[in-house]
Design a binder for these strands. Structure first.
Length: 903
DNA sequence: TTCCCGACTTGCATACACGTCC
DNA sequence: GGACGTGTATGCAAGTCGGGAA
């Protein structure tokens, strides 16, 4: 293949002309999803915990990573109405409960953050990012000497500080916001980098090595056994020790910290709770920026000092707390009421962190999974070459799967048809009359399907209700598991029905038959003393029974499309296990805030490293940090051709002089990422070097893969991986925007502020959705209505003129005489109509802006719920305005956060 | 060191329920 | 009461990443 060298961008990394960082700009010119947050960098509010204080605060979290706010155990409501598991505590109850806790985390304490503020202001004098409120102005470097903003800025996402130059919306979304009209000048000053004798040493060598405290080299329980063959003696309906089990397990409350303390010995990898040591050593060794007067004091002591010196919360806060608590209390009350009905104990207390290989539960009881009903043949004959054909039920089933997809885009994909034909023709057999898919006419089956759909639609509400109840009755027993005596909802207890594989993008396996899963495909994981779930299909049995308490899955089977992969049955998102893991994720991201300044300084320095791998790591980390790119694992040939940062191809990045990069690639789920950003000159040059001598399809980062990158990141911060940057940047953007932009106003206005911040995060993360089929119709309808109203205003104005002259109004469109109104009444009507028009125009704009932006994904996966809850408490916004029922359940663990919590 | 398995999170599409408007 | 629009639940595909075997 010809080598396409980007001739215009051949660089020499030794070129010393690249003097320092250059400006990042975020576009406000184009309408694009890729337009990213560029909020003005301002000094954080006095409430804000800066990096230093945040670090200290987090250092004294309870060893399990909790905020040490004691949570009460609750009983849970009956299964029919899944409860909001955790009481959503009012700040009042939160405070009182905190008294019970010996270690109250300053993270959630306004006092701590207030106290640390002054300290950190003095401490931070480098690494400045200064906002330049100027549109498309030339690159500027601002005064590098001093600013009080630096520490605050450091904990902001790059995307919030830097501005992309122009991004091209994937689907034409207009995303410009007021914030986007500003731009920022990053100034990463690597202190002492020139003379640092360790410059060429790996960062790991300069940072002190990881602490092994709390870890054990011994293998954790069960970790050595890979899905061991469990004894099958107990299979299928064993009722062993059921009664005994019930009495012993159900009386148990979910163990609190104590219960899991022993689990710590299973620890394999460093946990968040290990970090104070790490942090301290890191700061001493790298000592990039935080030269504050307390540097010599051990972190732990500094924490104590700071905590003891904190001051009280403001009266505003108290007011907010009091008022908002009503909405929080309401949930709490309901929740308590529900829980009284339950025989199971229920706790919102999260158990201590448990990493891989660690014990995740002690007792686990569940009823297995439910299978889809067997296929019922409909007998409708499809046509082949114009003639009806007989099919066996198996053949008909697969034909029906294909027929019902007639109206989908898959029908226009040759790969889909090819794969379907390959699998279906095997079922038909060699001697079948059907020899070619082209001569098949599935219309009769499709029409039958439409009729069935219509029938269902036409059912009375009573019939629908009855059907629903029947389904619920059948499924009830599978919906719940009892984990350590606590009743928890199971997530996906229904086995996937057979169907045609609907891979995203240009997936090479789309259209293949996803065969029916049978009990003999399924491995069950359950407590040793728990009864083995009865196999719901008579005469069949489970593939295997395991009792592995180091994992959280309840069952799994091999994916029929890719047998190397598994499909798992897990607990629902609202379960304690998931909640715990969620919390750990956010704590890790918060920890990054305290490391980010040094990390950025380190990679900035390595942009010009002589070692190519080092340079590639630096640039890749920069892109992950700045653009929230995913890591980008290698993919097999039988997967869709998508990329992430490490797997970017040369052709995915275009260098646009003097220092812009245009990214265009298909990311996860084959979602297109298009973005043009201005980058620092060394990055621009480095990308050019990586492209030199390669063809478009070659790897841009040929020396790099995700494991190398993550291994490097772990040297910078314990547990740091590429995906932590996404969580960090998303959460800190939300926190930042909410606190900068929330003004006095009514709840609706505040909700709009939240949605705007949520939208910015979605754009940063490139969370897209397809435009709804009815979008354009909806827009036309709105335009029509607006025009109608505008016409009405015009008419009213005429009437007003006439009324002022004492004349009666003109007749309406139907020729009827209108009511005589006073000029005042007409003026009022005009004003009301205008308000209506404005609202509709606003709604229309919002609808247009959000037509391809998916807000939910970031809310569910990237935004620390504590930011939202604390903000709601501070600003008297009922939490239900932001979180729906399932999010309230999922984030139960975050509900008692202190109103002063900052990410 | 690389490869690949295994376990988990993330993410989009779709189905469905529910409220509002006419 | 039906059409329409919106929000939510669910399904399942597609990622990330740790860790052990080769």
């Amino acid at each position: 293949m010809a080598v396409e060298a980007p001739s215009k961008h051949v660089f020499d990394y030794d070129d010393e002309d690249d003097d320092g960082p250059v400006v990042f700009k975020r576009s406000n010119t184009s309408s694009s999803k890729q337009n990213q947050l560029n909020s003005e960098v301002k000094k954080a509010s006095s409430q804000r915990s800066d990096g230093q204080s945040g670090r200290q605060a987090s250092s004294v979290r309870a060893p399990n990573g909790q905020n040490s706010v004691a949570q009460t155990n609750k009983s849970i409501p009956p299964s029919k109405s899944p409860p909001i598991r955790s009481p959503i505590l009012s700040p009042k109850s939160s405070n009182s409960s905190s008294k019970a806790s010996p270690v109250r985390s300053p993270v959630v304490s306004s006092k701590a953050s207030t106290s640390f503020n002054d300290q950190s202001k003095q401490a931070s004098k480098q690494n400045k990012f200064t906002a330049v409120k100027e549109e498309k102005s030339p690159i500027k470097r601002t005064d590098e000497t001093n600013s009080d903003d630096d520490d605050d800025d450091d904990s902001k996402p790059l995307s919030a500080r830097l501005k992309g130059i122009s991004s091209q919306g994937n689907k034409g979304v207009s995303t410009s916001t007021p914030a986007q009209s500003q731009r920022f000048v990053p100034k990463i000053e690597v202190k002492g980098s020139a003379e640092d004798p360790d410059d060429d040493a790996p960062l790991s060598a300069r940072f002190s090595t990881k602490s092994n405290t709390g870890t054990s080299s011994s293998k954790p329980y069960g970790s050595h056994e890979k899905k061991p063959l469990a004894s099958k003696i107990q299979q299928n309906g064993s009722i062993m020790k059921v009664k005994q089990q019930k009495s012993s397990m159900l009386s148990d409350k979910r163990p609190l910290d104590k219960g899991n303390s022993s689990d710590q010995s299973y620890a394999k990898k460093p946990k968040i709770s290990d970090t104070p040591t790490m942090m301290k050593t890191k700061q001493v060794t790298v000592k990039a920026e935080k030269d504050d007067e307390d540097d010599h004091i051990p972190i732990s002591q500094r924490i104590k000092k700071s905590v003891s010196s904190v001051s009280k919360a403001s009266s505003v806060k108290q007011k907010a707390t009091k008022v908002v608590s009503s909405s929080f209390k309401k949930i709490n009350k309901k929740s308590k009421k529900d829980m009284k009905k339950s025989k199971y104990s229920k706790s919102t207390k999260l158990s201590p962190s448990s990493g891989d290989g660690q014990k995740k539960w002690s007792t686990l009881v569940h009823n297995g999974v439910i299978f889809p009903p067997p296929y019922k043949p409909h007998g409708v004959k499809m046509l082949y070459d114009g003639r009806p054909v007989d099919l066996t039920p198996e053949q008909e089933e697969v034909a029906t799967m294909f027929a019902v997809m007639q109206e989908t885009d898959y029908m226009s994909k040759p790969q889909f048809k090819k794969n379907f034909w390959e699998d279906w023709s095997k079922l038909l057999g060699r001697n079948h009359v059907i020899k070619s898919l082209d001569k098949c006419d599935f219309t009769p089956i499709y029409e039958w399907h439409l009729q069935e759909k219509e029938k269902k639609k036409q059912m009375s509400s009573e019939e629908k209700k009855a059907l629903k109840e029947e389904k619920l009755m059948q499924e009830e027993k599978y919906m719940w598991a009892i984990v350590d005596g606590v009743k928890e909802k199971v997530g996906n207890f229904r086995v996937e029905p057979p169907g045609l594989f609907r891979g995203r993008g240009e997936h090479p396996k789309m259209g293949k038959l996803k065969r029916r899963i049978r009990p003999c495909d399924i491995t069950i994981n359950i407590g040793k003393d728990a009864p083995i779930p009865e196999c719901p299909i008579p005469g069949e049995r489970w593939k295997d029974i395991k009792h592995d308490n180091t994992v959280t899955w309840l069952a799994f089977w091999n994916d029929p499309i890719n047998p190397k992969e598994f499909k798992y049955v897990f607990l629902a998102a609202s379960s304690s296990l998931k909640g715990q893991s969620d919390k750990e994720k956010y704590e890790k991201a918060r920890l990054l805030k305290d490391y980010i300044k040094n990390i950025r300084a380190a990679y900035t320095k390595d942009f010009t490293a002589k070692d190519v791998t080092k340079r590639q790591i630096a640039v890749a980390t920069y892109l992950i940090d700045k653009l929230a790119l995913r890591a980008g694992n290698e993919k097999d040939d039988d997967e869709a051709d998508t990329v992430g940062c490490c797997t970017l191809k040369v052709g995915n990045v275009e260098c646009i002089p003097p220092n812009k990069l245009k990214f265009d690639f298909l990311g996860k789920d084959s979602i297109q990422y298009v973005n043009t950003v201005e980058v620092e000159l060394p990055v621009y040059k480095a990308i050019g070097q990586f492209q030199t001598g390669k063809s478009k399809s070659d790897d841009l980062f040929d020396e790099l893969d995700t494991s190398k990158l993550n291994a490097h990141l772990k040297e910078l911060m314990p547990g740091l991986t590429a995906k932590v940057f996404r969580t960090f940047n998303a959460s800190i953007t939300l926190d930042d925007m909410l606190n900068k932009e929330t003004k006095d106003g009514d709840v609706a206005e505040k909700v709009v502020i939240y949605q705007r911040a949520n939208k910015e995060v979605a754009i940063i993360c490139n969370h897209q959705r397809s435009i709804s089929k009815s979008h354009s119709a909806q827009m036309s309808r709105l335009t029509e209505k607006i025009n109608e109203l505008k016409g009405l205003v015009k008419e009213l104005k005429t009437d007003l003129d006439r009324a002022k002259k004492g004349k009666p109004p003109l007749k309406d469109a139907d020729g009827k005489q209108k009511r005589n109104l006073t000029p005042e009444a007409i003026e009022k009507k005009i004003a009301q109509t205008n308000v209506k028009i404005e609202k509709m125009e606003r709604d229309m704009q919002t609808k247009e802006d959000l037509k391809t932006v998916a807000l939910g994904t970031s809310k569910i996966n990237y935004l620390d719920p504590r930011i939202t809850v604390a903000w709601c408490k501070r600003h008297e916004v009922p939490i239900e305005k932001i979180f729906n029922k399932s999010l309230l359940a999922k984030f139960a663990w975050a509900m008692d956060v202190d109103p002063d919590f900052r990410f």
